[in-house]
């Protein structure tokens, strides 16, 4: 009887502990979701459940049904005038839509996506070749390169930021929007390269050599082996590394804030969100909805590769 009681207390304590850990980890996300759905009168309410659901913030960010919202009524009446051609009407509405009052969430989303996708894709190709080289081919200098890749982990972004910015200024790249955007793309590729090299190198070493030998006997060249044998065998690892690199670029703030500072149209999500918060548009429901929408792609990607990613993380292939 006493043992049973003691066991019961222990078990309850254990479940409370788990509940505490989960709450600690998840509470900020729940608060985000709850606040993004609340009306202003509800913000001070400590309960996470909104009294009334407010979807306006999401609609506004995703541009649903807000096409004519910012156009004043007098102009709307003017637009109904049949004498105007369609092109004229469009130019009038366009004028009102680009006042900068709406947060161009979709554009920032697209900028972020384009940058992260391209950078991690190029980085993946370069890293596949490089990682194959130092995990499978024998040559002098291989050890130095391998250790050098690890050493790069030590460099913080700030150490590279000033010289790279100076290079971009002195070469004239920072003078145009496209130049700055391309500089940023290249920087993201470089930032994700060491991690990709390291993670892929670890993975390639786990593929049995005998498979490659068999392919060699069948008359494959070394290069053919890479794309006929190694790549198909490592698809899960490749996608994990790709997503990991994608996440690094998607989250990056420091370089983007410096390089894209004067090109509002090219803002990525992190700097766009930060700007939204300091601007007069700072309204909690919009900020939280934007936060949720920024986190969602990353969380979904993570769910897809969770298992591989976790084992990749624990085998040492990480960078922050």
């Amino acid at each position: 009887m006493v043992v049973k009681k003691k066991n019961f207390i222990r078990k309850t304590g254990f479940f409370l502990l788990i509940l505490l850990i989960v709450t600690f980890a998840v509470f900020p996300f729940l608060q985000m979701l709850s606040l993004s759905l609340k009306y202003q009168f509800d913000w001070g309410n400590p309960s996470l459940i909104p009294r009334k659901i407010n979807l306006e913030a999401y609609k506004e960010l995703l541009n649903i049904g807000t096409k004519l919202r910012t156009v004043p009524d007098s102009i709307k009446r003017l637009l109904e005038n049949k004498a105007l051609t369609r092109a004229q009407k469009r130019s009038i509405t366009k004028k009102y839509q680009e006042t900068g009052d709406i947060f161009p969430f979709l554009r920032y989303f697209w900028n972020s996506f384009f940058l992260s996708f391209t950078a991690s894709f190029i980085s993946l190709i370069v890293a596949t070749l490089g990682a194959y080289s130092f995990s499978r081919v024998n040559y002098r200098g291989r050890g130095i390169i391998q250790r050098g890749v690890l050493f790069v982990y030590m460099f913080g972004g700030i150490l590279l930021l000033i010289p790279l910015y100076q290079v971009a200024i002195k070469s004239g790249l920072a003078r145009t929007g496209s130049g700055s955007f391309i500089s940023l793309l290249v920087i993201y590729m470089v930032q994700t390269l060491p991690v990709s090299l390291y993670m892929l190198g670890n993975y390639f070493r786990s593929i049995p050599f005998s498979i490659e030998e068999a392919a060699l006997i069948d008359g494959c060249t070394r290069f053919e082996i890479i794309y006929r044998v190694i790549i198909p065998l490592s698809l899960p690892a490749l996608s994990t590394v790709f997503i990991y690199a994608f996440m690094i670029a998607w989250n990056e703030y420091l370089f983007a804030s410096v390089f894209l500072r004067s090109y509002k149209n090219l803002y990525t999500l992190p700097i766009g969100l930060k700007a939204l918060f300091v601007s007069k548009n700072a309204i909690w429901d919009r900020i939280m909805a934007a936060s949720i929408l920024t986190a969602t792609p990353v969380v979904i990607l993570f769910m897809i590769v969770q298992k591989n990613l976790v084992s990749g993380l624990t085998s040492g292939g990480v960078k922050e």
Binding site: P28, M32, P270
Partner: peptide, 17 residues
């Protein structure tokens, strides 16, 4: 899986909360 969320989510998306 849930307790990995803080590590996975972008910094910018959690600071406001």
């Amino acid at each position: 899986a849930l307790i990995l969320l803080p590590y996975i989510a972008p910094v910018i998306s959690v600071v406001f909360s």
